[in-house]
């Protein structure tokens, strides 16, 4: 023992020097810590997300199999939604979802990008922080609050002022024909625009803040104005990321339920006038799921959910890919 330990530095500990003899100088093998277990547990948590999504997709597909086999692809193009006659088509809801989302983006994109430009390029840091915080706060307001506000404040405003004004100035367009009763696709789109605004503003702000300062200085030093610099250099550099923020907002607008349900009027119809009430995919699920009688009715609602799931998944995936490309990809000049 003692003779052996002479060749290693820690000679006093008999036990250890014996293990040295067995495994060479100092242990390199074996379970020295819980890292391996920790790693396995965390990997399992990570994979659980994938499993959860797969399960969700599977359950939606299984739940809508009856409707899928009965209506096939025609489900998305059929306008009739008649639970009594057991005829179900999603076209009116898809239309309502698309129209409200487009209105939301038309309003929120210029506003959100404008806010981002102000926060990054113009506002003094203190003001920028406060306004940036307020914008993010918009995202934290529960959607039922937006719904109530939309119903009691925005809807009368649209009925009495916004709609008459649009009708008077742009009434030759079919979108602004007729009369508004307050609730309708326009009101729903406007509520949505405020709800998605923080996504566009916050992500665009981060994107613009990531535009390298030398690019701005390079442009300003040439005698370019602030406007030319923002329009000609900063926005082109950030366009991919801003595009990502817009699509992220679209994903949010497509799926928003509560606030829209409260202000859209819940009437399944396809009309051009935005003053008219409509119905969205998420709203009809929320309204009718609890009273859906009969397996086909339930299955049709589930299929709506499946369509919504696939649409938002695709939209969000695209958005993330764009934002990621902005930061890392070949165009990403990090």
């Amino acid at each position: 023992m003692v003779a052996d330990s002479g060749m290693v530095s820690v000679s006093a500990h008999g036990e250890r020097s014996r293990s040295f003899r067995r495994r060479g100088p100092r242990a390199l093998q074996g379970w020295t810590s819980g890292d391996a277990l920790f790693r396995k547990v965390c990997t399992a948590f990570g994979l659980a997300i994938v499993a959860l999504l797969a399960l969700l997709l599977y359950e939606l597909a299984r739940g809508s199999s009856l409707s899928l086999s009965r209506f096939g692809f025609g489900f998305a193009f059929e306008k009739v939604w008649d639970p009594v006659a057991e005829k179900f088509g999603a076209a009116t809801f898809i239309y309502g979802t698309m129209v409200t989302s487009v209105i939301a983006l038309l309003v929120a994109v210029p506003l959100g990008v404008g806010i981002a430009i102000f926060l990054v390029e113009m506002a003094p840091p203190a003001v920028g922080n406060i306004i940036g915080f307020l914008v993010e706060l918009l995202a934290a307001i529960p959607s039922i609050v937006y719904g109530l506000w939309g119903l009691f404040v925005l809807a009368p405003l649209v009925r009495d002022h916004v709609a008459p004004f649009l009708h008077a100035t742009l009434g030759f367009l079919p979108f602004f024909s007729g009369e508004s009763h307050g609730v309708g696709m326009l009101t729903a789109g406007l509520v949505l625009s405020i709800m998605v605004l923080p996504f566009i503003a916050a992500v665009s702000r981060d994107v613009l803040a990531a535009v390298p300062q030398p690019l701005r200085e390079g442009s300003l030093a040439l005698g370019a104005t602030k406007w030319e610099t923002i329009w000609g250099v900063v926005l082109p550099y950030g366009r991919t990321g801003i595009g990502g923020s817009v699509i992220l907002a679209l994903g949010r607008a497509l799926g928003e339920t509560m606030a829209v349900t409260m202000v859209i009027g819940n009437t399944p119809q396809i009309v051009l006038s935005l003053f008219e009430p409509g119905y969205t995919m998420s709203s009809v699920i929320a309204n009718e799921y609890s009273e859906a009688s009969g397996p086909l009715y339930l299955s049709s609602l589930t299929e709506l959910g499946l369509l919504l799931f696939i649409a938002t998944f695709a939209v969000n995936g695209t958005a993330r890919a764009l934002i990621w490309r902005m930061a890392h990809g070949p165009g990403g000049r990090a």
């Binding site: 030398p214 690019l215 390079g218 005698g223």
Partner: peptide, 20 residues
Amino acid sequence: PVLVRKRVGMVFQRASPFPT
């Protein structure tokens, strides 16, 4: 300052071509 910079141009340490 915009008019000043049109007459007095500047080149920086790190070349920063625009992303075009």
